[in-house]
Amino acid sequence: MDEAAVLASETVPSPSVPVVVEARGLNVAFEADGQRVNALTGVDLTISRGDFVSLIGPSGCGKTTLLRAIADLQTPSGGTLTVNGMTPTEARQARAYGYVFQAPALYPWRSVARNVMLPLEIMGMSRSERAARADRYLRLVGLGDFARKFPWQLSGGMQQRVSIARALCFEPTLLLMDEPFGALDEITRDGLNVHLHELWRRTGMTVVFVTHSIPEAAFLSTRIVVMSARPGRIIDVIENPLGATRELGIRESAEFLAVAHRVREGLRAGHSYD
């Protein structure tokens, strides 16, 4: 890794804002077909409360692996990783985060409302509180009228919104999203991006967002982490100069295009390593 990249990945948080995720020299390795694959090497990253951090990079760069390590769905093989000052396992047990997967992963035998209530049931919330929360968060994602429907009766975009409501309903302060809109068409995706941005701005939660899409990363993020494959690593961290309130029109602005350009350059530089 060259010096500029090292400098770029060393972000210094301001002391007043609490750190949510901190990775130092993080390594993750798998055994695949008897071969050791370095999914992530030497990742240093600090995410502060209220950040919207996008992880972007080509397939195999370890962006999903990094998210799964934060969620304690993947065990690191080296370095340190803390979530809310705890180990990832402790943070998971404390139900510190909500996770949105690439696919909605709804349970098909549960109605929309009961899918949203699933984490609340597991966490032992009372029946009336569960119903109130499901109603509130389904309204928040614009699906208030669909509570009694079943997943198969909804479009892909609506299903993914249900899964977002399900991740939000127990009110975690950290939201981890793994390419949540990757399988959706452009228009649906735009709509959900605006929605997600509004949600983030209103709640002030911390979001870590994995994506393939440069415009999506530039539109949503306060910081964009550019990653590269083989071995998976961070090659650039870009502070997004766009203001806190954003609309889709902002994507035509010079500032936006400059951010997108820098992300693209970073991705291209990452590719030239092969």
Partner: peptide, 25 residues
């Protein structure tokens, strides 16, 4: 499927909850 099981893990669901809310139905 693995995603449905991962979801239960993100909730730190006890094995009994995984059985009654996922595997059994």
């Amino acid at each position: 499927d693995p995603l449905q099981l991962d979801l239960m893990r993100t909730y730190s669901a006890a094995p009994l909850a995984v059985f009654t809310k996922l595997r059994w139905p």
